[in-house]
Design a binder for these strands. Structure first.
Lengths: 212, 212, 212, 212
DNA sequence: AATGAATGAGGCTTCATTCAT
DNA sequence: CATGAATGAAGCCTCATTCAT
């Protein structure tokens, strides 16, 4: 939804924006250090370098700091994923390979960020927020797959994208959480490509299900 | 003599066992309702229908209630999964199909329990506990795969089992969390079989990696 | 204090007596190990080797265990002091010397017991109990002094005895509490004899005061 | 960076000082009313007229409230005693007389404060704290005695001061606790002077002992 | 706009006491 | 007589939030 005119925003502008960002960054740092429930408002304020009351000028309460921060942070990650998936892959098969390739590129390029994503994801309490974020990522994948040369015309890309993203995301999550380190890339990537291509091909051979 | 007397003895016998179970059940209920960090000792006591101090006769602190309960609960679930996977499958390929088959059997047979498991999994804060539980399930799968007729002799089944379980588990989790319902079984099962067989086959074609 | 018919029947006979003594001994042990407020009913029961409920067959509550125990225990100590003070001293001066001599004999003979006494004394909450116990000791000294050959006829021995006992007792207490050990006996005894003889002589030279 | 942000800063300035004093005063009041172990944080907060959490802005825990308060309170009392003992006494004998004189001056001038001190002393559970406080008073006396014109050069004043203070202090304590009133001053002072001068003279005639 | 001192509800845990066995 | 499992009031402390400056 783009508007032709950029509406004039608040006069306070960039200073206010910076403070809000500083708070959100502080939240992410605390989150990764201590885990969601252990993050205290005081920690955030200290790390952000602002007063305690200042937080409440920007956010009505602790929960909203989390919500806003997570949303912004995930949008950012999704955008990066989207950008890195812009290669002109052709077949669905190739798209899958490229998807895994680019996904792992991103993961290995910024493991910290993805570890954070995984941590975050498991901390989110509000199911609606969780669904929003998940759906956003799936849509990025869906657009990617749908633009494949041999994509069945009229086929809803969402369920397949859901499967593909679910496999990818969970593989990374479980690796980070359970193994606590990323596996050797070469072999791992092959396995994932096998799994995703296998799943996607099977999915496309099946007639479209009714219930989502 | 100075420190000998400070023991608080656990009660014994069957009455005691019932109380302990009641507490653990109450913990699971609270956990699913409110999320791990929000579970209060008082809630558990109320739901279990016992006095506040009684909890401390059975568990030394809140944390241990969680640990014991979760472990017992997951062992139970894993045992069921294990039992349902005892079919005499032959090839690895068939084992994978059977695995998905039985897993989904279990999931569709008791969706509530699995929804609880999924919720639980995301609530657990302690990484060590998370890893324990995850590893337990993976081992069940590993034993299953390793007994396949064409399993490569001497090959460590753990990494492959990890992949397989990760795919299965995440597919169920994401379906329950994001779609909030289980997909139509027939098509879903095909997709999962494709994904898992694909992943496992790829994995076995790759030479064994060094770092786990 | 409240109702006379609050009777929970006490057990009887020698078995009962032994149990009561075991409880009281356990109380003293706990008291010396942990300090009054840290003594728990459970500790006492464990040390005494009786059940938790059994305590309440012999004592209505924790406080009364303390009160009864302390009274019995102090009576015992006073009796020993009294016995050791039976020497046939002649002048008041000699009586004082003998008093210090016997007092320190007792203190050095059983320093543990006196350390306990000191600890106890400072723990006693009820002022009435404190006064009772103190008065009892003073009376022992009073009888001793009054039987001196040159004791002024008709002079109330209580105030002087009070002074003497106060000096003696506090010297021991402060040594045990602050120095945490008994000083070298020879010199210490001389000092105390000097102080007490000095105080007593001064007191007897002064005309009898009115108030106390 | 990980542990840098966890500081809770103490408030500053005069307002803060007033609040801290209010808390300490409330602690003393509670202490005298209920005894050390019975003092509850809530009591202190209520009496001080501040919120519960406010206490924790000024003191990290209950124990530290006690420690700081008692130390400050005793320093105050000791300072007064010190000041009143600044007379240019000459011989040790005269010093002793002056000491008793000024001590009783102080006691009779503010009996309430000394009753509090006595009560306090018996309430203190922590032996270390007790020793600190006692030692502080003894040092005041030691300085006083050491400056006497005929003080034996090189003689350690501490043991003698200990004896003197012990006698003085216990006489007052026992009078307040057991007699529950101060005796008639004239006679009492004579007795105490006799006792203390006697003890001190004896002590100085004895060669310096080895162990304290 | 920014601050941080003050607040108090609420969390965990202990322990004296009761009562059914 | 004896027991000890069960109880819950009460204690200490944390931390999100407010409001006067």
């Amino acid at each position: 939804m783009s508007s032709a005119h950029k509406t004039r925003r608040k006069p306070s502008q960039s200073r206010a924006w910076m403070t809000s960002i500083a708070i959100q960054d502080a939240f992410v740092i605390s989150l990764l250090e201590r885990g969601y429930e252990q993050v205290s408002i005081r920690d955030i304020a200290n790390i952000a370098g602002v007063g305690l009351g200042t937080l409440y000028l920007y956010f009505p309460n602790k929960e909203s700091i989390a919500a806003v921060t997570i949303r912004r942070w995930l949008r950012h990650l999704a955008r990066e994923l989207e950008r890195s998936g812009k290669a002109e892959g052709q077949s669905v098969q190739q798209r899958c390979h490229a998807l895994v390739q680019h996904y792992l590129d991103d993961v290995f390029a910024k493991p910290k960020a993805w570890q954070a994503l995984v941590t975050l994801e498991r901390r989110i309490t509000d199911p609606e927020l969780y669904r929003q974020m998940y759906t956003h990522f799936v849509e990025v994948v869906a657009v990617n797959l749908q633009s494949a040369s041999d994509w069945p015309v009229g086929r809803d890309p969402f369920p397949v994208a859901f499967l593909a993203f679910s496999l990818l995301c969970s593989a990374v999550r479980d690796a980070l959480l359970v193994l606590q380190t990323l596996p050797q890339r070469a072999g791992w990537q092959l396995q994932l490509e096998g799994a995703i291509a296998g799943g996607v091909v099977c999915a496309l051979q099946t007639p479209e299900p009714d219930c989502p």
